[in-house]
Design a binder for these strands. Structure first.
Lengths: 142, 142
DNA sequence: ATCTACATTATAATAATTCTAAACTATTGA
DNA sequence: TCAATAGTTTAGAATTATTATAATGTAGAT
């Protein structure tokens, strides 16, 4: 399958030049079954492991932010010490595993629609997101 | 009112020595009507404005983290670029004003109880928190 | 093929936070 | 009351994450 053609298209649509580095990053981010959650560090590590050519750290930062601005990535705030990004850019909820520091997407069906009873005058709601923190249940360990 | 006695007690209860700096920080944080949301920078600024004696930046970091560990403060993740802390340490929801970068607590009554339909095996839920991002409603400006 | 605007790169700069080690202080108990 | 000691504060250094810079490289248009 000529997979890269899709990425070249995708980049062009956003007005981003399809450079070697950006296509490489698309492959890492979007050639996946499931949505992908990562930190910049994770991404640099994956790229430097998977790819033969090297990529500059600055390019990874630039490209992630360019993708974010174009709506190809979404930043998730869970932990003020780490910036997570998500390839699922729709509004959705998350589980966060406090043992492994892993993020898990929620399906629409996992959480009922949230009803907000309060209004802040002159303000409209941009998003409503739930974070469910989980950790190993030591009760079952016995 | 001998307000500081309470803070000395509060610190002792947590096994923290009631030093001048810690009592000072308690005054800034807890002599308030409403819960207080702040960044370390905010706090340093407030202390250096309100107090006559100076306090070291390292002490503010140390003390905030000590208070957090003892459950006197809670860290809130909204923005990966800023660490917010909250004097309300109970599990509760927030509005975040994207214009002013201000955090607002939700009352219990503002948001219906969240029903989580998904289970992650071997994991128990530690907390469920909602973040409602709001911004100025330009529709009404007209 | 050449030009131009945009990208990439290594490195420097900045910002936030943590570490270090010396000086200080609250508590303990003689 | 007065050391002893264990915890605390402090300034500044070190570390880490991120952004800026400026030179070089490259995609796309002519």
């Amino acid at each position: 399958m000529p997979k890269n053609c899709n990425f070249i298209e995708k980049l062009r649509e956003a007005g981003l030049r399809p450079t070697k580095q950006r296509i490489k990053m698309c492959e890492v981010l979007y050639n996946r079954e499931k949505t992908f959650h990562f930190t910049i560090n994770d991404l640099v590590k994956i790229i430097s492991e998977k790819m033969n050519e090297k990529i500059s750290l600055a390019t990874v930062y630039n490209t992630v932010h360019a993708f974010e601005k174009k709506g190809y990535l979404k930043e998730i705030s869970i932990d003020s010490h780490k910036s997570y990004f998500d390839t699922n850019t729709s509004a959705h909820h998350h589980f966060f595993d406090e043992d492994t520091h892993e993020l898990i997407d929620c399906d629409e069906s996992d959480i009922d629609k949230i009803n907000i009873r309060k209004n802040i005058k002159g303000k409209k709601i941009n998003s409503v997101e739930v974070l469910v923190r989980v950790a190993s249940d030591n009760q079952t360990q016995k």
